[in-house]
Write a protein that binds this DNA or RNA. Structure first.
Lengths: 270, 270
DNA sequence: TATGGACCCTCCAGTAAATGGAGAGTCAAG
DNA sequence: CTTGACTCTCCATTTACTGGAGGGTCCATA
C-alpha cells in the first residue's frame, strides 16, 4: 500500500492527476481512510494506470478510456474504437498540414512583398438562397446601373422580403471589360412574384473564397488578383461565377474610399 | 449599421461568438445602445473580422490575434509570429503522426493476434537517482539472492534513507541465462556511507520504455519480447542496460501470480 | 513527549474558445 | 395591440488538469 505521493513517484503521474482520476472514477484508490481521507494505492493498480496512460498517449480521451476499461470491451469493439481514432487522427493531421502550408505561403509572400498582404482570404460555406434578379449582357460595367433601376421596384415595394445585401454575379468565365454578362440580384424570401424581366430563382449553396475590399470599385482588380493568386497557391480551383456583394455603397456613405464590398469566388479543393 | 444577427449572417460568424469577441475586446461593436444594450456593427468592421478569422484559420489563438491587431505589429514582428507558429505546427504534426503510427501498429497487432496485446508499453523520463548497489556476475539468476542478502544491511539499518523500490540492473547487452552480470540496487538519499562491497553511485536519468508485469518472474520473457517488438515497430532503439523494479514481491504477497514488476528499458528515438 | 517539516486533505478558481439555456426585455410587421 | 423574431445578461458546461489557500496528519528526531 502506497500513499498517493509514493504511488505518484512510482508511476510518474502527478498527485493532482491521481486525485483527479479518483474524482472522475477512472482510477480509485484501493482504500481511503475513513477518518483522514488519505488515499492508499496498491502496486496491483499500476498495470491499470499504465494501461490508462498508454491509451491516453494514443490520443483517447479519458471518457473513452473510462468506457473501455470499465466495460472491458470485446476485441472487435476495441478495434472499432481504434479505427475511429485512426480516422480522426488522419483528419486532424490533414487539417494541420493544410494550416502549415498556408502559414508557409504567407511567410513566402511576406518575404517577397516585404509586408503583410493587404487582403485576407477566407473559405466559407454559403447557404443556398432565393434571389430576385435581372441578367443581361451590358457593353460597359457602368451600364449595370440600368439593371439596378429595374430591380429598384423590388427594393422599394418588397423591402421587408429582402434577406441580405444586394449583389452582382459575373457569369463570364474569364475577366472582360466589354460586353459583360452580369446578373444583379437581391436575396429574398421565396413567396413574392415579380414582373418581367425580374426573375426569382434559387442560388445554390457554394464553398467560396471570400475577400473583403474597402474602397472604390476601380481598385478591385488588385483584390481579384490576390484572390486568384491565393487560390492557386493554396490548392483551390475556380468553380463557378463569382459574386460581388455591396455591403456599403454610395447610399450609405459619401466617400468612395469608404465603400465596402465582398468578393465571393466559388472554389473547389484540387 | 447592422444588428448582431444581420452582422452574423454577413460574416457567417455566430451571434454567440460575436458577443464573446466583444466581451474579450477582440471586436467591439461600433455602438451599443445605452438603454437596451443592443450591439450595432458596421460594414466597415467586416475587414477586421475577416482578418481575425483568417488568422484563426492559420492556428493563432485569440490572444495572439488580439496582440497582433491591437498593436499593429511591424511586418518583421509579424514574420516572427508566423515563424513561431510554423515551428509549433510542425511539432504538433510530428506528434500526431507518431500517435497515428502507434494506433496503426496496435491495430495490426490486434488483427494478427486476434486480441488486445497483454502489455501496455509507455515511454517515461526517469530522473537521475542515487543508489546503493552490489554488482556481480552470477552463474544463474537465482544466485542473485546472495546479492540481496548483502544489501539487506542497508534495507534494515537505513530504512529511512530509502527513496524507492528495490531493483535489478542487467548489464549484459544481450539476453543470457548463465553468467549474468547483474547489479542489485536500492535508491537512497546521498548522505550515507556503506561498507564494502556495497557502493553508492548515481544512476543517470533516462528515457525508458516501461512495461508492468504481473505474475511470477518466469513468465517475464513474454514481456521482454513484447517490449522489444514494440521498440522495433515504434522506432526506438535500445540505449543501455534494462532495469527491473520489484514493486510487489514475496515479502508483500504469498501467491507469485500477484507479483508486480516493472521493466524499464532505456531507449533512444531512431 | 513535543515539534518541525514533509505530506495529505478539501475546496475554489482558472485555463481556451466557445456553446447552451433561462428569464427577461425590445423591435417591427400586421 | 399582439405576436413572433430578435436581443440582452448571467450562469453552467466542456477537457484535463494546475495552482493555491487553509487546515489536518504522519513520523523521525530532539
Amino acid at each position: 500500500m502506497f500513499k498517493i505521493g509514493d504511488f505518484s513517484k512510482l508511476s510518474l503521474v502527478t498527485v493532482k492527476t491521481l486525485r483527479y482520476y479518483d474524482e472522475i472514477g477512472l482510477l480509485r484508490p484501493i482504500k481511503i481512510d475513513r477518518f483522514t481521507g488519505y488515499r492508499y494505492y496498491s502496486a496491483g493498480q499500476l498495470p491499470r494506470l499504465q494501461y490508462i496512460i498508454a491509451l491516453k498517449n494514443l490520443g483517447l480521451s479519458l471518457d473513452e478510456i473510462s468506457a473501455m476499461t470499465k466495460n472491458s470491451l470485446s476485441s472487435s469493439q476495441m478495434r472499432d474504437v481504434f479505427i475511429k481514432k485512426k480516422v480522426e487522427l488522419q483528419q486532424r493531421i490533414g487539417e494541420e498540414q493544410k494550416r502549415l502550408m498556408q502559414v508557409e505561403k504567407l511567410l513566402e509572400r511576406i518575404k517577397m512583398e516585404g509586408k503583410m498582404p493587404d487582403y485576407q482570404i477566407v473559405i466559407k460555406n454559403i447557404e443556398p438562397m432565393n434571389i430576385a434578379s435581372v441578367r443581361d449582357t451590358v457593353p460597359e460595367i457602368q451600364d449595370m446601373d440600368g439593371l439596378w433601376e429595374t430591380l429598384k421596384a423590388v427594393r422599394t415595394y418588397h423591402a421587408s422580403s429582402i434577406t441580405g445585401p444586394i449583389m452582382a454575379i459575373y457569369h463570364d468565365m474569364e475577366y472582360r471589360e466589354k460586353n459583360v454578362d452580369v446578373e444583379v440580384a437581391v436575396p429574398i424570401h421565396e413567396e413574392i412574384t415579380l414582373p418581367d424581366p425580374i426573375k426569382v430563382r434559387n442560388l445554390p449553396g457554394e464553398t467560396v473564397a471570400s475577400l473583403i475590399h474597402k474602397g472604390p470599385y476601380e481598385t478591385m482588380d488588385a483584390a481579384y488578383q490576390a484572390l486568384m493568386t491565393w487560390c492557386e497557391s493554396n490548392g483551390y480551383e475556380l468553380a463557378g461565377p463569382d459574386r460581388h456583394l455591396f455591403l456599403r455603397t454610395h447610399k450609405d456613405v459619401g466617400n468612395p474610399e469608404e465603400y465596402i464590398s465582398e468578393m465571393q469566388q466559388p472554389v473547389r479543393k484540387i
